[in-house]
């Protein structure tokens, strides 16, 4: 049976070892007495030093365009709006006076595409369900601002980012997306500009 007090003392030993590990001289002392130092300071001093995030790190979606900002991949099919779990996406399709969809580069396009940062939970469902790979996840995370109904609602202009940017932040994923798009293009080439996947006139969300 252990003596009363040894448990307390061994706990104090662990804490003291950790204390020494955080100082360079303490690590020297530990090595001298034959203890291998393991953990040092683990704090990342945030505004000065930023944590290195993994490549797949995701935060807040953005809209991808090819070459020029008017050539965006989004066709305003509203699948993401419908599937978005917290319902933070709002899309209105661009239509002319007669109510027919306006086409640009052979595709319909959204007139309004708003995402509310304060509601979005960065879950990536919109990216997973998008049949056109038009929406992707960003990795900037310093989005705080004071305007709840102004700056925190991201409109189409602020959401648009180039394909090159997507390639620069998620190179691996972008390569996969490019492959998929190329395959789709090859398949769709014989039959003219019909839409794969869901039809543009998807029903409005059930709730």
């Amino acid at each position: 049976m252990a003596l009363i007090g040894t448990g307390v003392l061994s706990g104090m030993g662990v804490v003291f070892k950790t204390f020494l590990e955080t100082y360079p001289w303490g690590r020297v002392v530990l090595r001298t007495v034959g203890v291998k130092p393991t953990n040092g300071l683990v704090t990342v001093e945030y505004p000065d030093v930023k944590q290195q995030h993994a490549e797949r790190f995701r935060y807040f979606p953005f809209l991808v365009y090819d070459q020029t900002p008017d050539n965006l991949r989004c066709v305003a099919c509203r699948i993401c709006e419908q599937e978005c779990p917290p319902q933070c996406i709002h899309i209105i399709m661009e239509k002319d006076e007669q109510g027919r969809p306006v086409k640009n580069h052979g595709r319909t396009l959204p007139k309004v595409f708003d995402i509310d940062t304060s509601v979005c939970m960065s879950c990536r469902i919109c990216v997973d369900v998008c049949p056109f790979d038009a929406i992707e996840m960003d990795n900037t995370y310093e989005l705080s601002s004071e305007g709840r109904f102004t700056e925190m609602i991201y409109d189409k202009q602020r959401l648009l980012k180039s394909d090159e940017y997507f390639h620069s932040i998620h190179p691996e994923e972008a390569a996969v997306v490019d492959q998929r798009l190329a395959a789709k293009k090859a398949k769709a080439a014989p039959s003219a500009p019909s839409q794969p996947g869901a039809s543009p006139a998807a029903p409005p969300p059930a709730i």
Partner: peptide, 13 residues
């Protein structure tokens, strides 16, 4: 400071 060091932290800096 000391408690922070015991917990792998910096403490006030």
């Amino acid at each position: 400071k000391l408690i922070a060091r015991m917990q792998n932290r910096f403490g006030p800096t």
